[in-house]
Design a protein around this nucleic acid. Structure first.
Length: 157
DNA sequence: AATACGATTTTCT
DNA sequence: GAAAATCGTATTA
């Protein structure tokens, strides 16, 4: 995916994501219905949902389902491709640029201000990218409910 | 109006 | 391996 925030272009290849269903998924923010924060999740697919985690980190989601379903994919990690110097500057270090949800959000320069934006509006884009050799499904991380659902997907290459 | 709690990361021991 | 940092949101009174 590619972002153009503050005049800086950064792109990376997504390698780790997690799926979140809406009303069927106790671990989802949208589980208890529509609220102001989760509003973007109930939009049609192609909308970005960003939230502040632990008051410290910005985590990025992409809505995938039809309107009202609140299906989304949490971007957990990726490998930098373009604008690496920008990411290094934003992260304040040269390693571990986007190998985690909060890190990825910070590296791409996304904040809650960008929540609800549509992909393709000029700020955020999804590219075709290189297909992974394989995909592993594992249990999701950092949640306390519905841990038994293997909805974390990792590119094996 | 008040309070408890994260879809986390970093740093220290 | 453990703990702190930090604030918006949801829940409760």
């Amino acid at each position: 995916m590619t972002t153009m925030i503050g005049g800086e272009v950064t792109s990376l290849r997504l390698t780790e994501v997690e799926a979140y269903m809406g009303s069927d998924d106790p671990a989802s923010h949208a589980y208890r219905g529509r609220t102001r924060r989760t509003e973007p999740m109930f939009e049609a697919g192609g909308v970005v949902y960003v939230y502040l985690s632990y008051g410290v980190h910005f985590c990025v989601n992409i809505v995938t389902g039809p309107p009202g379903e609140a299906q989304a994919v949490l971007l957990r990690g990726g490998t930098p491709i373009e604008g690496v110097n920008v990411m290094e500057h934003r992260r304040g270090r040269s390693d571990h640029l986007a190998n985690g949800p909060g890190k990825l959000g910070q590296a791409l320069g996304l904040t809650t201000e960008h929540s609800g934006l549509r992909i393709g509006d000029g700020l955020i884009q999804l590219d075709r990218g290189t297909p992974p050799a394989g995909i592993d499904a594992t249990p999701r991380i950092g949640i306390s409910k519905a841990i038994d659902r293997p909805w974390r997907f990792v590119a094996s290459e």
